[in-house]
Amino acid sequence: MEKNEELFFVAADDMTPKQILEDAIKVLERDGWHQGSLTAGNAEQGGAVCAWGAMGRAATGNAYCYNENVVEAADLLAHSLNLEGLPTSAIFTWNDAKERSKEDVILAMKKAAHGEV
């Protein structure tokens, strides 16, 4: 995430964290995957997104917005990546690693959502 990007907290809806992860996979497949910032395009209407941006867009329609359910989805993802106990920013670091690929992110989200790959 770039230093000038801001995240905005919005009220939670009825999506479960697992549904958010499942829909985030669809966002990544539809809009593409991005490293280095939340999104390479418009926060609401498209453009590639990072793992966190995909969860935000899936849950709120905006890559820059999140809610309690997105945080819980991020916790599930962090757990599946053995990043629990670290700050949420660990997901950004994991997403932005040079060796990371879109397929890695999708597989991690599937694992987090379903407990298997």
Rank of each mutant, 00 (worst) to 15 (best):
K3D: 15
A40C: 10
E22G: 01
S101H: 05
A74N: 11
D75C: 11
E22I: 08
T16A: 13
N42K: 07
F92C: 12
E6F: 14
F92M: 07
T16F: 01
M1V: 14
P87E: 14
H79C: 08
A90S: 15
W52Y: 01
L28N: 01
Y66S: 08
C65F: 06
L83V: 10
K98N: 10
L81V: 09
M1D: 05
G115Q: 10
G32R: 06
P87T: 09
L107A: 11
D104I: 09
A11C: 05
Q35N: 01
E103T: 12
E44R: 15
I20H: 04
L38W: 11
M1G: 15
M15W: 03
V117L: 13
A59K: 02
S101F: 00
S37P: 08
K102S: 12
E84K: 14
H114D: 06
R100N: 14
G47A: 03
A108L: 05
L7Y: 15
W94V: 14
K102T: 03
N82W: 00
D14I: 06
G61V: 12
F8Q: 12
A51M: 13
W33H: 08
E103N: 10
K98I: 08
G32M: 13
I20G: 04
V117D: 02
R57A: 08
I20S: 04
E6V: 12
D14E: 15
H34I: 02
A54R: 10
S89A: 10
N95I: 11
I25H: 04
L86M: 14
A58K: 04
E84M: 12
I91Y: 00
T88W: 03
M15Y: 10
N67H: 09
E6T: 13
W52S: 12
V49R: 09
K3R: 08
T16R: 01
M15A: 11
A113V: 06
G115F: 08
A12S: 15
G56E: 10
S80W: 00
S101N: 01
L21E: 07
S80D: 07
A90I: 10
F9R: 13
F8V: 14
T60R: 00
N42G: 01
E116L: 06
G47F: 03
A108S: 12
A112I: 04
